[in-house]
Design a protein around this nucleic acid. Structure first.
Lengths: 334, 334
DNA sequence: TTGTAAGCGTTATCAA
DNA sequence: TTGATAACGCTTACAA
């Protein structure tokens, strides 16, 4: 069994409280006494018990919870890494969980983390109703939403300019002569996708191009599923001459689908991804910085934890179009 | 302030212990009583306090710590995701930390996690001496090393067949006619790199090709640094006709370097990576499954936590060569 | 400079 | 079927 402060106290012939003083570097301990205690700590291999420490009322657990969709997706792991760095700076640790886009799992993870008394929660929500968090907010748990806004609750959030970015992408394709622009990606139920589709539609409308539902393939799928969806779209009788993909997973899937195509298809993807610029046709993307999202979110969380009482903040990060080639492919027929 | 069991007890007119019984689903509570308690729990918004729970002697924290090099590297995030899944299966949460290949930071993270009384630790070590973990092991903390073995301690480890994989890669290039094969990657101080260089050298030796230190560029660098290292190597008076890269970061860097080259250079990389098969010259790699490493490591950890007392296990995961094109480029001069 | 005692929110022991 | 009461390992008053 692990030695406790009492063991150290006994071993060094002082009281529990003195050990506590030494461990916490409080002053008012004779150097000689401190030395004896330190020696005993070494000898016994004593390690502070953060659990016991944080049990005291009003004490913090120095832990934040991070809930994302999938830690293995580079977009989210970049966020996670940034959060970790900020947390370390404030002496915090991070517990992570992947919700898999499942609202039930989101709630389950929130519950698990709250039982462990995290001081704060950063989450990319899967669900659409977060009223269940209201009691927690009132109890002082800091909560910051990332990438998507909270549902039916007003709290801090760090979002992207989804509509603007998607509009940029679509306009770019339109200005390249495309009029039949397909979309491949996740289901429209997801906030970011909804916003991106909105941007897509606005661009179409502004150019006087009628919206065609048949050009959309929004489906809950992994990379292989996205590939299949794209293939299906391209094998239509009147296939699109260009595609807009709603995120990095969809982009990769579509790239795989495009490989076997005889014709060259235009492509602009939301999210940048590694090696995008190295592909046979370098991929034009709407770029943004996932690490910045994590960083800003975490910094805001710690401001709140330090007593910042400003009204809920909404941060919108900018996106930019990075033309690389795939978005500048001319339509294969007029 | 958060309601506690005492509050719930008061609100439902029963004793603390009865609330505890209801919360933990212990039997021996009259249904009627249980209902009253449950109602009070709802009304007050009571949430169990896992911290208080795990304070009791001998209780587990149901937390495991995972220390990797960099959560943003796809190799490690794949491991992290797999660990998370296994942990969830056992009712555990995971706290993660990136060591940045810094032994000091490794120890610091270990210390932080241990203070929080994690029941187990999974780590990709940065340091080379882990005797400091011996007391923890004796105290019952389960520790499993991933990707690299512990230093001066005998514990569970999940490794790759580094030497075999590297040898395969090198032999493949040699059989393609290459004799001047350069290497780009991380410093040889890192176990996996050392082993991979060993495999490289064995392949050379077996083919009667003298080892040339001048063909190695092993440096602590990010992708950009790897690119620079490769460029330097290729601008030598007698440049290599092919390169072996020691991991996914190096592969990406080298690919960037190769882009501007007039001649085609052979390339085999250790670690598979997304889109490797989609590049202009698809990249031949030594493939293995990072998720399996995380899964096996975590499963082993939980076996230990459940009382498995077998002697320390050494698992070596297989690697395989996946020829895709870049490794089959002929040398540009005889 | 050092120590005593109470309390944090649970679970475990033992009675009732 | 229920309930007092004592841990758990620490910090925070408050004394000495």
């Amino acid at each position: 069994v692990r030695p406790t402060m009492v063991d150290v106290a006994r071993a060094s012939g002082v009281s529990l409280k003195t050990v506590s003083r030494v461990v916490n570097g409080e002053l008012g301990v004779r150097p000689e006494t401190a030395r004896r205690v330190t020696l005993a700590i070494q000898a016994l291999g004593y390690r502070e018990n953060e659990i016991a420490r944080s049990l005291r009322r009003g004490q913090r657990s120095s832990t934040v919870g991070l809930i994302i969709e999938d830690l293995a997706n580079p977009f989210y792991s970049a966020i996670a890494r940034a959060v970790e760095d900020v947390a370390r700076k404030y002496g915090y640790v991070v517990i992570v969980g992947s919700s898999e886009e499942d609202p039930g799992r989101e709630r389950e993870l929130v519950g698990t983390f709250l039982k462990r008394r995290v001081d704060g929660l950063l989450l990319v929500p899967a669900g659409r109703d977060h009223r269940y968090l209201i009691p927690e907010l009132m109890l002082g748990t800091a909560i910051v939403f990332l990438d998507r806004p909270p549902g039916r609750v007003d709290t801090d959030r760090i979002l992207l300019d989804n509509t603007g970015g998607a509009r940029l992408a679509t306009e770019h394709l339109i200005s390249g002569g495309h009029r039949r622009i397909g979309v491949v990606g996740d289901p429209i139920g997801i906030y970011t996708i909804r916003k991106r589709i909105e941007g897509y539609r606005r661009a179409l409308a502004a150019a006087g191009i009628p919206f065609d539902q048949g050009l959309l393939r929004l489906t809950e799928a992994d990379v292989a599923g996205m590939e299949a969806a794209a293939l299906e779209l391209l094998s239509q009788s009147e296939p699109p001459t260009a595609l807009f993909t709603t995120n990095n997973r969809a982009s990769v899937g579509v790239l795989r689908a495009l490989r076997g195509q005889g014709r060259r298809i235009g492509l602009v993807g939301f999210d940048d991804f590694e090696l995008a610029d190295m592909l046979p046709t370098p991929v034009t993307v709407v770029r943004h910085d996932p690490a910045e999202m994590g960083r800003r979110g975490a910094e805001l969380l710690f401001m709140r934890l330090q007593g910042d009482e400003r009204p809920p903040l909404r941060v919108v990060l900018r996106t930019e179009l990075v033309p690389r080639g795939s978005g500048e492919v001319a339509p294969w027929t007029a």
